[in-house]
Nucleic acid binder design. Structure first.
Lengths: 197, 197
DNA sequence: CGCCCTCCTAACCGATCGGTAGATTTTTCG
DNA sequence: CGAAAAATCTACCGATCGGTTAGGAGGGCG
């Protein structure tokens, strides 16, 4: 094994940190531009200016590189959305969720593609209901806060709205001039009508 | 070249027809079950009980096999939806579109996966607006028929509703017990509220 | 019979994949 | 400076990919 420290916790070197960050960055670019299949170890290494053996010195496998890149992109999105949601009051949190998510993805199109590609390509179980559960909970809380009717299927509502978010983002990736803010407002309107006043 | 007739038109042999149909069928199964990457020529050949060279006797390339499988699945969907839409009157055609599409995809989950996988994996330009343009036109016609307001953005409405359809189907693929009919009705309701009475 | 056409097999090709082994350079630090 | 540790390189491995080549079995037909 020519591999790095495996067992104990130890603070990473500066170079180590920088290299890892660089590798994550170029991996996001590659996956975003050329798809999951286009992000081979050789391609990652070349874009980072090193050899693939060096890449595997910093990460145990290719899957680990892609996973780290995915988590990096996802963490930024989650943090952004969480901040926006907490700043709103209960009744408006679903709207804040939709707006901030669409907004974030607009500002970071490569992260968007990275997240989508990773979601499609890692194995198997992708339950939309699980993915949009946080949104479902916000919708449920908002519905109660507004005194809406109790027979609403929040799970399905969240799945539909989530699909709408995905579609808006996909359209923006295709047409950079697409007015995602207006589309998000449209989606928020459709959501609000099912939540009552 | 050990390849088949290339130039002229000629009616295919019975064996030829059967083999092609079988290859399309097993390719749909493979892509649906193991993803686009899992549908290698060797895998297709093995499941069909022949060698991969024989597969390439009936189709020029692997891409042609997958394309044929995709077109087969897509044609069935389009025909089904078109029939349901034509049977409805203008004001209700968007609803018929949503219901029939969700219904068809529920009844043919493998076709669904095939279509999704093909859409993700063939190169590049996938404009959601183009994909849902037929729906957008139905929505526009229905809005006019109902005397709705003229400032509605049908393009965005179609994109959002289309995304909702995708999400409902994805959820059904994950949870076969999911009530897609109810979800489709929920989506139709959300759509109807934006179309006016 | 002998010829041809359809359908298929066995064997191979070059490219690329993720990953490994061991030597070698570069950095850190006493 | 000099040794240890960190970072990287060259070279290779086995597997798999899509695709090609040459040829043979078998039926229809003159």
């Amino acid at each position: 094994m020519t591999r790095r420290r495996e067992g104990a916790t130890a603070e990473p070197t500066l170079i180590e940190r920088a290299r890892r960050a660089q590798l994550i960055e170029v991996t996001i670019e590659l996956v975003a531009d050329r798809g999951y299949a286009g992000a081979s170890l050789a391609a990652i290494a070349e874009r980072a200016g090193i050899t693939k053996a060096a890449v595997l010195y910093h990460f145990p496998t290719k899957a680990a590189v892609v996973r780290a890149a995915h988590e990096h992109a996802l963490a930024a999105l989650v943090a952004d959305v969480a901040g926006a949601v907490e700043a709103a009051d209960t009744a408006n949190r679903p709207a804040a969720y939709v707006r901030s998510m669409v907004g974030h993805l607009r500002e970071h199109p490569r992260h968007t593609r990275m997240i989508i590609e990773a979601m499609v390509h890692d194995d198997g179980d992708h339950d939309p209901a699980a993915r949009w559960r946080p949104l479902a909970e916000l919708i449920d809380a908002a519905r109660i806060a507004r005194g809406g009717s109790g027979d609403t299927d929040v799970r399905t509502t969240a799945i539909i709205v989530g699909g709408g978010i995905d579609a808006i983002v996909a359209e923006q990736l295709h047409d950079p001039d697409y007015d995602t803010a207006a589309a998000a407002e449209h989606l928020v309107e459709m959501l609000d009508t099912t939540l009552g006043p």
